[in-house]
Design a binder for these strands. Structure first.
Lengths: 124, 124
DNA sequence: CCTTGACCTGGAGCACACTCGAGGTGGCAC
DNA sequence: GTGCCACCTCGAGTGTGCTCCAGGTCAAGG
């Protein structure tokens, strides 16, 4: 059964700020959020799942414009599944490159630390 | 022997844009760049080495303000070496966390791709 | 000499992703 | 019914890190 969550609960569960949640809704990254009679938002488990994907994409460096394209495809229905997979696979490759680059630069950083530690800095 | 490089050569070698090089100099990330009689910049091998470190720090997510602090310490001389090492080691830990987080989110991304591929999306 | 292209300065402008503020409403506790 | 706090909307503002522009200078080739 589907639970419902207040804005504050969603902030707690997702780590997105209230302002960010409203911002995402405004730009179309998050659609059809239910409301109470009085106009307050009520998020569903589906919304939480979607926010979880948004966090994944965002934290792996996908720009908002690209997330919007993905969101648009999701709204268009099952016939866009192949296109969605293509986007995610391309993004996965980009993430792999990011990881490679980050690891290389971390090695560089560690070399520098080692260089300081064996006294090369003072010897220059 | 120390070679000298024109701005265009440094753009080629470092991948930083001309504007970025001037920007870094203006804010104090890059100091004492030599000049020709006519006022054009001449970068040294030391400058290239420093730019390489800046790229490493930047690409691993160090904000400019922190790079400035590190640059300041470098200018102050040998007695700041311990402080510099501390900064770099702390940054190394931050990079490690970044890598962990990125790897976790990549797994998440791959789960989602697998979920599409085994048809769960259509079955919902 | 004259052209041309790389370079100079100072300052303004931009893209991105939020974040904040003002002014107002909803709904539970006392 | 009175506080009070969480929530609402709309629009403007912010921080980061560049990037661009105008207007001018330098220097090598023809």
């Amino acid at each position: 059964m589907q639970q419902q969550y207040s804005p504050a609960q969603v902030v707690d569960k997702t780590g997105f700020s209230l302002d960010t949640l409203r911002y995402y809704e405004r730009i179309g990254l998050l659609s059809d959020v239910a409301r109470t009679a009085g106009g307050r938002r009520l998020y569903s488990d589906d919304d939480l799942g979607w926010l979880d994907i948004l966090r994944c994409l965002r934290d792996t460096g996908m720009p908002i414009a690209a997330m919007l394209r993905y969101a648009q495809l999701c709204r268009e229905g099952d016939h866009t599944i192949d296109a969605r997979v293509t986007i995610l696979e391309e993004h996965d490759r980009a993430v792999e490159e990011q990881l490679d680059h980050l690891r290389r630069q971390q090695n560089h950083l560690r070399d520098k630390i080692a260089w300081y530690k064996n006294g090369s800095a003072r010897a220059e």
